[in-house]
Amino acid sequence: MFPDALQFHIASYIDNFVKWLQISYGATFDAFSNFLLTILLGIQNALLLIPWWVWVVVVTGLAWWQSRKIFTALVLGGLMMLVGVFELWVPAIETLAIVITSVIISLVIGIPVGVAMAEWDRLSVVITPLLDAMQTMPSFVYLIPALMLFGLGKVPAVIATVIYAVPPVIRLTDLGIRQVSATVQEAARAFGATRWQMLKEVRLPLAMPSILAGVNQTTMMALAMVVVASMIGARGLGERVLLSLNRIAIGNGFEAGFAIVALAIIIDRLTQGVARRWQPPQTN
């Protein structure tokens, strides 16, 4: 066995630190937490207000608009419908609300950070290893800091999801901007573009396909994480899976798992379609 003399715990120090944080900044955390929760519930209630058949029609319509394929459109609409058939409509909407909130926050943070990384090389030297670390760590790890600061519930779920899902959009924004043709940028510079004009008129629009690919990946990762985050009290489909696991209710677990996959496919298809539509046109 490991010698007693060498054993040492930092757990109590961490607990104390967190306690200190909560005492000193408790009001700030609470305000932040309430703010997030308000947004989240607002989104959730709005989503729940929409009748189920509107959802099915909208999903089918969007899928058709993007793919121009009847089959794809019907399959996606059918998947949406099945979620309701399995009596998982409300948990699916709850999950969706957390995903949407997390994705919005991820984009609000991620796109500017990605732009800044592309503009300032030094920043990218600092942030790149951070992103590498974030992506190699197992997703469970992110539950801990979120839990420490915000306890159980939907808010820490959103925080953990944002931490887990934000790297792809940062990376792909940075990458997309760096890949913008040097010839085009030189031409813009020759015509007197300021740094801001260069970003707005040339770099961002030309990086858009890459940025949207990042949005797609971020969304998919958010969905994956929301399922994991059910362990710290995010309700929704993940919770259903978790409950089924605990009760060894294989059938129920399958249904909930199926609903997650259905959401994933729908979200993936729809966001990918948007990305494709943004490619610079080759013909008129």
Partner: peptide, 16 residues
């Protein structure tokens, strides 16, 4: 650059 000169490039440099 905006007012006095204008440049034409070998590889065009147009905005796609």
């Amino acid at each position: 650059r905006r007012n006095k000169v204008a440049m034409v490039f070998q590889h065009y440099g147009l905005l796609p």
